[in-house]
Design a protein around this nucleic acid. Structure first.
Length: 513
RNA sequence: GGGCCUGUAGCUUAGUUGGCAGAGCGACGGACUCUUAAUCCGUAGGCCAGGGGUUCAAGUCCCUUCAGGCCCGCCA
């Protein structure tokens, strides 16, 4: 083995494979007639006694723990959902077959077995093996059998190993799958249509964030990975699909931490003839339903804190939240008074705030956000940083926008969608001006989107729910990396060979010029 | 961007005021027909993340680079 390749291959296991092939054996066969999953066998034979069952079973899986006892072997075999013990005797298999197992089968190998089920003297449900076949030889050593794989970095970088070794990790991702599946069913049952809109977008929008940039060689044009599907889904509402959703991977070129990964999953939902109150109701229903589905209860525990999902949830305007947690109402004060208040209380970045609306957001984030532990909707955001939300029906300077906070984390964001094309044009022009002044996260103007609104979008409510954070909440994980199968990690430096040459990847900037 | 912490064999890890780098599992060889972290005997396996320094002597102290974790800031 070339040591520069940094492979986990083990000499002794490669040697075994060569021996087996010399003896005419197939080390990597094509299929196996597996009749039962392990959990099915355990269920079916739960009341088995010490006598072998009449019925023969056939199952397959990975060997986790082989215990050799001379002419007898015990082994634990596991598949996706369970483990079961195997009992193998020389008397039953014959010398040749038994020695084949004894000498050539290792922990980590995948085998198929046929046999009968019984319970050992110690009470363990076990397959008394009549015959086995090697289905896949593992050439890399499994981590330690008792402590398993603990190293966090390895668990993220080699998730397959994490999944092989850690049932807790498998359980987390099973739950993630169930959450997405249940979410989809929930919406389909309510006659929403699921669509897929472009991930590669010539103009990005729908959120304030820095994009990833790429280039299409044939079209000879710059493209962006979407930061949100919002503007495309609203085009569908214009087109007449009045209940739509997309479970979308979004991409944001920003920092990575325990709550952020450059690519993440969000469900965005739009329903015509609804407003933001309706979308709060819908969000509440969805998340409460998911909690019940996953935890079997409307109360879950997150980092030791019970969170209550029974409806209705607390709702407060941003102004109310600031009045309660900061003890000040921005609408009763001058901007100068607000700046003084901010300085007194150590509010970061207050120098750039010039309007009551901006102070409202600053104070909310500084005083209130982290305190919103139980599910809480905060609504009526200032117009300054909500360019896609409809103006408030009563309050000047505010929009009909809400966010949902749980355990201080932002979980969802929704609006009464802005459908006045003239207003939308003006708001995006404002964003564009900010962008041109160097605000890297301000939005571009998508004139085609404005034209779509020009044809008329019915009054519409929309909401986006962050799926990764929801999975964190429902699986009690404190890092987003624990709920992403393959979190983004920095590429590890290769031992630099002399022939190392940069693939001639064309740089975005160069091509975009 | 700031702070704190971590990196020792394939895995899990010990390593004292600086004094020969140790164990368990796994691997390899052997014994063992109801074990289950099986047990018992033996063998091999380490550039202590990389680089530099202090010292008679560095896993240990200092500087630096890399990777990772946690917290803060920033950000939907």
């Amino acid at each position: 083995m070339d040591e520069n390749e940094n492979l986990c291959f083990e000499r002794s296991k490669i040697d075994k494979i060569n021996d087996l092939r010399e003896r005419g054996m197939t080390v990597y066969p094509y299929s196996f007639a597996r009749n039962d999953a392990i959990t099915a066998i355990k269920d079916r034979f739960s009341d088995a006694g010490h006598e072998k069952s009449d019925e023969q079973v056939s199952t397959a899986g990975r060997l986790y723990l082989i215990r050799r006892h001379g002419k007898t072997i015990f082994a634990d075999m596991g598949d996706a959902d369970g483990r079961i013990q195997l009992y193998i005797r020389k008397n039953d298999l014959g010398d040749e077959k038994f020695d084949l197992f004894k000498d050539y089968i290792d922990n980590g190998d995948i085998i198929g077995v046929t046999g009968h089920v019984f319970r050992t003297k110690m009470g363990e449900l076990t397959i008394w093996v009549d015959d086995f076949s090697l289905l896949t030889k593992s050439v890399c050593a499994l981590p330690e059998k008792f402590h398993g794989l603990k190293n966090v970095e390895t668990r993220y970088r080699q998730r397959y190993l994490d999944l092989i070794m850690n049932e807790e990790s498998r359980e987390t991702f099973r739950t993630r799958s169930r959450i997405i599946s249940h979410l989809r069913t929930f919406l389909l049952d309510r006659e929403f249509l699921e669509f897929e809109t472009p991930t590669l977008q010539p103009i990005y929008g729908g959120a304030n964030a820095r994009p990833f940039t790429t280039y299409h060689n044939f079209l000879e044009q710059k493209l962006y990975l979407r930061i949100a599907p919002e503007l495309y889904l609203k085009r569908l509402v214009v087109g007449g699909f009045d209940k739509v959703f997309e479970i979308a991977k979004n991409f944001r070129n920003e920092d990575i931490d325990t709550n952020h990964n450059p690519e993440f999953t969000m469900v965005e939902i739009y329903e015509a003839y609804r407003d933001y109150y309706d979308m709060m109701d819908l969000t509440e229903e969805i998340i409460a339903s998911l909690a019940r589905e996953v935890q079997g209860s409307s109360t879950i525990e997150y980092e030791g804190t019970p969170l209550h999902f029974e409806r209705p949830w607390r709702r407060m305007s941003m102004d109310e939240a600031v009045r309660e947690y900061a003890g000040i109402s921005v609408f009763d004060r001058t901007v100068e008074e607000l700046a003084a208040f901010a300085r007194e209380h150590g509010v970061e970045e207050y120098e750039s705030a010039a309007t009551r609306g901006e102070f409202l957001v600053l104070f909310f984030e500084h005083f209130a956000e982290k305190q919103l532990i139980q599910p809480t909707f905060v609504y009526d955001f200032p117009i300054e940083n909500s360019p896609l939300a409809k103006k408030h029906r009563e309050h000047e300077g505010l929009t009909e926008r809400f966010e949902l906070f749980i355990y201080g984390m932002e979980m969802a964001n929704g609006f009464s969608e802005l459908n006045d094309p003239v207003d939308q044009k003006a708001r995006l022009e404002l964003q564009d001006a900010k962008r041109r002044r160097g605000d890297l996260e301000a939005q571009m103007i998508d004139y085609d989107f404005i034209n779509a609104l020009g044809y008329g979008m019915p009054p519409t409510g929309g909401v986006g729910i962050g799926i990764d954070r929801l999975v964190m909440l429902l699986t009690d994980k404190s890092s987003i990396k624990e709920v992403l199968l393959f979190p983004q990690m920095k590429v590890q430096q290769q031992e630099s060979g002399a022939e190392e040459s940069e693939e001639s990847v064309e740089s975005d900037e160069g091509n975009a010029a």
